[in-house]
Write a protein that binds this DNA or RNA. Structure first.
Lengths: 112, 112
DNA sequence: TCCATAAGTTTCATTTTGGAACTAAGGCAA
DNA sequence: TTGCCTTAGTTCCAAAATGAAACTTATGGA
C-alpha cells in the first residue's frame, strides 16, 4: 500500500499523517509556530533542501494548512502563514515537544 | 542536511521527529495503542510492507519505544509491546487523532 | 509426508531525498 | 545602463528509501 492512500483511511490518525506525517513537514510547521514565514527562513532554520521545502509548502497550501501570501509588490514575493486549520496543529507540536524534552536528551551541542 | 542528523538538534520537536517522524512509524504506534503486538497484525492493520515494518520495529526497539518479547517457546516467536517511554507518546497520538477527526473528513469508505 | 503459521529476508523496480547549481524578476548603487 | 544583490523558486543527478512480491526458517499438526 502506498503512503498517499492513507488519506482515505478509516483512522483519523492515519488521515492526519497522510498530510503531515512525512519527513520535514512537521518541522516546517514548528517554524511557523516560531514566527517564521519565508522560504529562506525555513531553509536556514530547518536545514532541509530548497527542493523539498518547495514541494512541502505546495502540499501544505493545497491541504489548507498554510496560506501563500504576497508580501511584496515590487519584486513579487510570497511568504507562508498558518491558517486556522494549521493553527490547530499546535497541540500536536506541543506533545511532541514535551516528549522530546523528556525522552530525547541532546547528545552533542550543535547550536543550531 | 540529512534527516537522521535531527537527533542532535537543539529543538525537542526535531529530536522527537528523528525517531517517530518518518513514514509509517507513528502508524505502528497507533496499532500498539489499539492493542496489537504481532508482526502479522501490524501488516494487516496498517497496510505497510513487511520490509518496512521489520526495519521500523528494529528502530523502535533500539529507541526504547517498543520491547521485543518472546511469546512462544515452541516455534520461537516474538511480539512487540510499548515501553513506558512508548506509552508516553499517547498524548501525541491523541492530538493527531483529534485534528484528523476535525479536519480530515473521510472521502470514500475503504472499510479498512 | 505435506501443508499451515508466523516472523522475518531478499531482490529489484520505482519514488523520494540530498546537494548543488541555475533561473526569474525586480531593486539599488556606481 | 551595467552589474551585482535579494529571494523565491526550478532543474539535474546521484544516493537512499519505499513498494511489491517471492523466498526462508522453524515448528506444529493432520
Amino acid at each position: 500500500m502506498k503512503w498517499t492512500e492513507l488519506s482515505d483511511n478509516w483512522c483519523p490518525v492515519a488521515r492526519t499523517l497522510s498530510v503531515v506525517g512525512d519527513r520535514w513537514t512537521l518541522l516546517i510547521l514548528r517554524d511557523c509556530f516560531l514566527g517564521l514565514s519565508r522560504f529562506e527562513q525555513f531553509i536556514e532554520s530547518s536545514g532541509m533542501t530548497r527542493h523539498i521545502l518547495a514541494e512541502r509548502l505546495k502540499r501544505l497550501v493545497e491541504a489548507g494548512i498554510l496560506e501563500r501570501r504576497q508580501y511584496s509588490a515590487g519584486p513579487k514575493r510570497y511568504d507562508y502563514v498558518l491558517t486556522e486549520k494549521g493553527q490547530e496543529l499546535a497541540p500536536a507540536l506541543m506533545t511532541l515537544k514535551d516528549w522530546g524534552k523528556k525522552h530525547m536528551p541532546v547528545r552533542r551541542s550543535t547550536n543550531a
